[in-house]
């Protein structure tokens, strides 16, 4: 890719991304939302989070071996338990990473 082409691509990505983010925050009531959509918004965060999270931990078939998956499952389960009990992200990160490294080491 040429230098100018690279910048063109990056700026186009930036423009698309900003337009999506700016839609309602900048234009406010100039865009109208149907009542159903407003009710649907309650479920956006949890649904988007689940859609991002689940495939990172559970990968059916394909190219990823068990030796790579098992440490992630273990860290995910332990991390989820800590998250449910404490809701503390730093605790989840520390416990989760330690679990990942521990199980990786055990599986050699």
């Amino acid at each position: 890719m040429t230098d100018a082409g690279g910048w063109g691509l990056i700026l186009a990505m930036a423009a698309i991304t900003f337009a999506l983010r700016a839609s309602f925050i900048v234009l406010q009531e100039r865009i109208r939302l149907p009542a159903l959509v407003r009710r649907a918004l309650v479920y956006v965060p949890v649904a988007a989070l689940a859609a991002i999270v689940a495939p990172a931990f559970v990968q059916l078939g394909g190219d990823v071996g068990l030796a790579q998956q098992v440490p992630r499952w273990a860290a995910g389960l332990v991390g989820a338990a800590v998250a449910a009990r404490t809701g503390n992200m730093v605790a989840v990160l520390i416990v989760g990473m330690l679990t990942l490294w521990g199980v990786q080491a055990l599986l050699g």
Binding site: V42, Y43, P45, V46, L49, A50, I52, V53, A56, F57, R72, A75, G76, G79, A80, A83, A84, G87, M89, V92, L93, G96, M97, L100, W101, Q104
Partner: peptide
């Protein structure tokens, strides 16, 4: 595997949203 921190972040946010949510959530 430092990139694993990213799914852990999303996992925490998701679990907390679920724990606090109502049944439709």
């Amino acid at each position: 595997s430092l990139d694993f921190a990213v799914p852990l972040v999303f996992l925490t946010l998701w679990v907390v949203a679920m724990v606090r949510g109502t049944s439709p959530v």
